[in-house]
Design a protein around this nucleic acid. Structure first.
Lengths: 345, 345
DNA sequence: CTGAAAGCGCTTACAG
DNA sequence: CTGAAAGCGCTTACAG
C-alpha cells in the first residue's frame, strides 16, 4: 500500500506538506496543492485509518448489538442507526446475537477490542454486569428498548405500556367486553409492559362495564402457534368478540383459524395486531395494528451516542421515549350489539 | 484511557513484557504473567486497536454493502455474513444504500477511508467504475448475486435462471398450459435471469404442447400492485390457470384478488411465489415458492473474502453458485383437465 | 525470561 | 508557505 511518504517523494515535497494537502488544503499554495492532489489521485492513495485514528485518539466507529436482525423491528431500527451514523460520518458494526446472552457478551468483547467509541444495544436479560464492565472501559453506551437500570447511559424506548392501553381502548370503544389476549411469555419485557398497560387501563374502567380478559400464552410468537391456539380455544365455543395479539404474525395466524371455522373478521370477531409490519396492510383482511417507530428509535439512539462521542464533557444522559400509534384498518369493527346501540342513539 | 505503559508501571515490569503477556503469554514466567494479568484485569485495560492495527498492517474489518436491508433476502444474507465473520474474528460494517448508486459510491469511499480489508457488495447497475477503483486501492472485493464483469473478484450467486425454470416446470408438470408471469422490470438482473430461464425451458418443450405465457410487469413488486394488476386482468375474463410471481408478496396480493372474485386457489388457479419468505408457510393459502439460500450465500461470500485476506498470495478468485429449491405447499395443484387425465391413466 | 529500542503511518506544533 | 521532528500506542526482533 502506498503511504504518505511515497506520495511526498513522487510529488517532490515533504511528508508534512502531503498531510496538509489532505487535512488543511487551505494553508497550501494553490500550485503545491494541485500538484500533490494530482499525485494522490494518480496513485489512488488512501490514508491509513489506523495511523490517523491512533493520532486522533478516536475512530468514528460504533457498534450495534441486536438480538435478531431478521425481526422487522430490528431491521428498521438498524436502518435508522445506519442513516444517522452515515450523516455524521460514523460507521456501524452490526452484531446479531441470535438471542444468546453468551454471544452477546462475546460481541461486547469484540467491540471493545475494536475500541468502538460507543455501543447501541438491546441487551438480553441479566447482562447488566457485562454492560457495566463495558462502560468502565470508557466505551459509551445507549440502551435501546430497555431501561438503563442504574447504568451511566442514555436510553431510547417505545412506551409499551401505552401500546397495550391503545389496543384495549380501541376494542373497548368498539363495544368489546370479552377479549382474548393472545401473546407470549411475560419474561419478554415488552410483553410484560404491554400487559401491564392493559391491566392499568382495565382498572380505570368502572367494574360494571369492565371487559373480561382471557389470557392465552404462546411459547413462540409465531403465526402457526397462534393458529393452533385459536383452533383449540374454539373447540369450547366462542365466548369472546375481540382478540389482542402480541404481534402481527399472531394476528394473521388467528385470522386464518377464524376463517377456517367460518367466523368472519371483523363482523364476528375483531382482531388487532402489534408492530404494523410491512405486510399488515396487504393482508387478506388488512390488519388493524399498533405501529412502533423502530426507524426513529434507531435514528435517535445513534444521534444520542454520537453527540456524546463528539462532546463528552457537555453531554448529559437522557431517556427518549416514543409513543406507539394505533393504525386502524379492516380487522376491527364495532360489536353487533354496539352497532345496534349506535343505531338507536 | 489506560495504555500499556500505565499497566507496565503498575505491574512493575517493562512495556514489552506487558505486550508479551497479551500476545505471547507462554513465553513469560508464570508468576510475571499472573501479576501482569491481574493488573490488566483490575484496570480494565483494553489494547488500543488502532495502534495494534497500525503495526499489524490489517484490521480484520470487512464492509457489507446492500441495496435494502429491509428485504428479507438481504437480512438473511447479512446474518450469514455476520456469523461467518464472527467465527473468523472479523467484524462487519453494514452499509445500506437504499437502492441509490450515489449513496453506494459514498459508502465505498467511507469503507475505503476506514481501510476495510474487504468489501462484500451487491452493486447497483453501472457502478463497475467505482468498484474498479476500490480494487485498485488494494481492497478485496466479493460480488454477491451479480457477475464479476471482468473485475478481479470472487462472486457468489443464486442460479436465477434455474429458479425460473423450476417454477415453470412445476406448473407445466401439473398440466398448466396458459400461465401469467407477474413480475417486475427486466432492468432488475434477477428478474431478467429468471425470465430467461423460463423462456429457455419453454423452448425445450415441443411447440404443440408449449404453454402460453402472458407477461404482466409491475412497476414495484408489492402485494398491492399485484392485487390491482390481477383485478384488472380479470375484468377481461380468466384465460389462464397458473400464475408465476416475481416474489411472495406478489403472490399474496394475487391470491387476495382471486379470493375477492371467488376464484379458488389452487382449485381454479395455481399460484407460485419466489423467495420463500418466513411468512409464506403461514399464509391463508400456504404458498408454493422458490427458496433462495440467502443465509448460505452470505456465509459463503464472507468466507471467500476472509480467506483471501488471510492468504492473499495463495488465493484464487472463484465463483460459487447456489441452486434455488422448489418448496411445494398448497397454492399449486394439477389443473382440472390434468386431474381427469390422471384418473384415466 | 526480561527490558530497551526501532518503527508501523500519520498529524501537528514549530522553526525557518 | 515549507520541512524536520516528536509522538500517538503498540509489537517484535535483539541484546543481555
Amino acid at each position: 500500500m502506498a503511504s504518505i511518504r511515497d506520495v511526498a517523494k513522487a510529488a517532490g515535497v515533504s511528508l508534512g506538506t502531503v498531510s496538509n494537502a489532505i487535512n488543511r488544503p487551505e494553508i497550501l499554495a494553490p500550485r503545491t496543492l494541485r500538484k500533490v492532489q494530482k499525485v494522490i489521485e494518480d496513485m489512488g492513495f488512501v490514508p491509513n485509518a489506523s495511523a490517523r485514528n491512533l493520532r486522533a485518539g478516536r475512530n468514528r466507529v460504533i457498534g450495534l448489538v441486536v438480538p435478531d436482525i431478521s425481526n422487522p423491528f430490528f431491521t428498521d431500527l438498524a436502518r435508522g442507526v445506519n442513516n444517522a451514523a452515515f450523516a455524521a460520518k460514523y460507521v456501524v458494526i452490526l452484531c446479531n446475537t441470535d438471542e444468546s446472552s453468551e454471544k452477546e457478551s462475546q460481541y461486547l468483547d469484540v467491540l471493545s477490542a475494536q475500541n468502538v467509541e460507543g455501543i447501541l444495544i438491546t441487551p438480553a436479560r441479566e447482562t447488566t454486569r457485562a454492560l457495566a464492565s463495558v462502560t468502565e472501559k470508557g466505551i459509551r453506551l445507549a440502551l435501546v428498548d430497555r431501561p438503563a437500570l442504574g447504568l451511566q447511559a442514555c436510553s431510547v424506548a417505545v412506551n409499551d405500556s401505552y401500546g397495550g392501553s391503545l389496543a384495549l381502548t380501541h376494542l373497548y370503544d368498539l363495544g368489546h367486553r370479552s377479549i382474548v389476549l393472545l401473546t407470549g411469555s411475560e419474561d419478554i419485557p415488552q410483553v410484560a409492559d404491554r400487559n401491564a398497560g392493559i391491566r392499568e387501563t382495565l382498572n380505570e374502567i368502572p367494574a360494571s362495564d369492565r371487559p373480561n380478559i382471557i389470557e392465552l400464552r404462546l411459547d413462540s410468537m409465531s403465526a402457526s402457534n397462534a393458529y393452533s391456539a385459536i383452533m383449540k380455544k374454539l373447540e369450547s365455543g366462542i365466548d369472546f368478540t375481540g382478540v389482542i395479539c402480541g404481534n402481527d404474525l399472531i394476528a394473521l395466524g388467528a385470522i386464518r383459524a377464524f376463517r377456517e371455522k367460518n367466523i368472519s373478521v371483523p363482523e364476528d370477531v375483531s382482531v388487532i395486531g402489534y408492530d404494523d409490519i410491512d405486510f399488515a396492510g396487504s393482508a387478506n383482511v388488512p390488519l388493524t395494528s399498533i405501529s412502533q417507530p423502530a426507524y426513529e428509535l434507531g435514528y435517535a439512539a445513534a444521534e444520542l451516542i454520537i453527540s456524546e462521542c463528539e462532546n463528552p464533557e457537555r453531554h448529559v444522559h437522557q431517556r427518549v421515549e416514543f409513543q406507539p400509534r394505533l393504525i386502524v384498518r379492516s380487522s376491527t369493527a364495532p360489536t353487533k350489539s354496539h352497532r345496534a346501540t349506535l343505531k338507536i342513539s
